[in-house]
């Protein structure tokens, strides 16, 4: 059972929080961040953990990396149960969790990497060699001896990513690593992740950018409100929509038009989101082009001004929408 890099078995996590009821009064409240989640990560794959902000991705990652303890269920990482063998788990995982905040800003990039190398028990010569290699790889060698506080946000993110490589672990856990990166840097980082994967590293990659997961991940799990909604390869998830067809409508679309579309007989889901300043309506239907005349009529009758209408192949965003009835369009711009 423990031969896979990651096994998550019926894991739930409930937080206790204080709910403010005024300046002095508060009461205990419970937030269920994960609900009975089970999944396995195969060796050598890039496993995407997808979902909107607050879905429970980071909670799951924090449990995998021993930062928090699950309320129930079991987790094994690289053959070690996380609640019993935390140091072995930590030694076998490279993590990038807090982005640029996981660095000492008053130290240089090189000093940061060497310090974390020491915490992973690397011998001094190996620590220095590894640090130079990583800095070269993430193209920060030129600014390696400047304090981190002088770095741009993207450079800090790159260094934080570099820090996750210092212990040369077989499993990499990357939590939204392309956040704050510009287009070329994000693409460069994805290429490094792919390269590391080709060298045999297993990668867990969380993102709320569905298109990023689609281009990088071998398998993905979609999490929303603490529940595992879907799990499989990108193709499997798209195919799981089965008969469903996706139609994207752009323009000025009032709420009542969306309501009217939802009431149409062959419409399974309809959700509205803002995209590049216009409103985009995504319709999941049992029919593709066949439904178009009726769809256009209903929209116009309800005050919509259609600028663009296109039946499309489903993507992960559509899978998410089909499963939840909500859209993530605003979050899925690939940088």
């Amino acid at each position: 059972m423990v031969d896979k890099p990651v096994i998550v078995d019926k894991v739930s996590k409930t937080y206790t929080v204080r709910k403010r009821k005024g300046i002095f009064r508060s009461e205990k409240d419970f937030v269920q961040a994960l609900k009975n989640v089970s999944l396995e990560v195969e060796e050598g794959e890039i496993f995407g953990l997808l979902g909107p902000n607050g879905a429970g991705k980071t909670t799951l990652i924090k449990i995998l990396t021993t930062l928090i303890l699950p309320s129930s269920g079991s987790v094994w990482v690289n053959g070690y149960e996380v609640s019993k063998h935390e140091n072995e788990v930590r030694a076998s995982v490279g993590c990038m969790l807090m982005g640029e905040r996981g660095l000492y800003w008053k130290l240089t990039g090189r000093e940061n990497l060497e310090y974390f190398g020491a915490l992973y028990h690397l011998a001094p010569p190996l620590r220095k060699k590894k640090t130079t290699e990583i800095l070269d790889w993430i193209k920060l060698e030129d600014i390696a001896d400047r304090t981190v506080e002088t770095y741009s946000s993207g450079q800090k993110m790159k260094l934080a990513f570099g820090k996750s490589l210092i212990n040369d672990a077989p499993l990499l856990v990357l939590d939204e690593p392309t956040n704050t990166l510009d287009l070329p840097s994000a693409s460069e980082l994805r290429a490094i992740v792919r390269q590391l994967n080709d060298q045999g590293k297993t990668v867990i990659y969380t993102t709320h950018i569905m298109a990023e997961a689609e281009m990088l991940c071998d398998r993905v799990a979609i999490i929303d409100r603490g529940e595992l909604l879907a799990l499989g390869t990108v193709d499997e998830l798209k195919t799981s929509l089965g008969w469903a067809k996706i139609i994207h409508v752009e323009g000025a679309i009032p709420a009542r038009a969306v309501q009217a579309v939802r009431k149409m007989r062959k419409v399974r889901q309809a959700s509205r989101a803002n995209k590049n300043g216009a409103t985009e309506l995504t319709v999941v239907s049992e029919e593709g082009s066949e439904i178009l005349p009726e769809l256009i009529r209903v929209l116009i009758q309800n005050g919509a001004n259609i600028q663009k209408l296109s039946p499309e192949e489903p993507n992960l965003e559509d899978v998410f929408m089909a499963k939840t009835g909500r859209s993530l369009a605003d979050d899925t711009q690939v940088r």
């Binding site: 930062l67 935390e86 140091n87 995982v93 905040r101």
Partner: peptide, 18 residues
């Protein structure tokens, strides 16, 4: 406050040594 505390809990060393 610096944001580095979680990073210290990700390494295989007990905080007592740090």
């Amino acid at each position: 406050e610096a944001g580095t505390l979680e990073a210290l809990y990700l390494v295989p060393v007990h905080r007592i040594w740090m």
